[in-house]
Amino acid sequence: MAEVIRASLLIFDGLLALTLVGVAWQLLFGQGLFRSVLLFIALGLLLSLTWVRLGAPDVALAEAAIGAGVTGALLLVTLGRLRRMATGHARDRGKGS
């Protein structure tokens, strides 16, 4: 029974590792900033799962709270400001000011 569990865990780890690389590839080389930021937050959560699998619960907590949480919020709010600046610019250019 232990053998089966270990094999299935190994498959799970393999899948998790592949997903991480896939998400990172999409996040870095895909199109669209908002999509990249969302994928980055997903990557943060996958990473905290990885830290649990590697036997580091403290790091999993820190990654989830800081890596996915605070950094994700920071990126989203920065994206919002960027978009507002872009529309601001367009409005200024539009008005020819």
């Binding site: 870095l28 900033l33 930021v37 980055f40 990557l43 590697l54 580091a56 790091v59």
Partner: peptide, 27 residues
């Protein structure tokens, strides 16, 4: 990638990669 936001994401991904190497060695 020229866009600065993607560069910032790239830094974080590099850091996470390094941490993964560090912790898998320890595990």
């Amino acid at each position: 990638r020229p866009h600065l936001l993607i560069k910032v994401l790239a830094f974080n991904v590099m850091g996470s990669g390094t941490f993964m190497v560090l912790l898998s060695a320890a595990a």
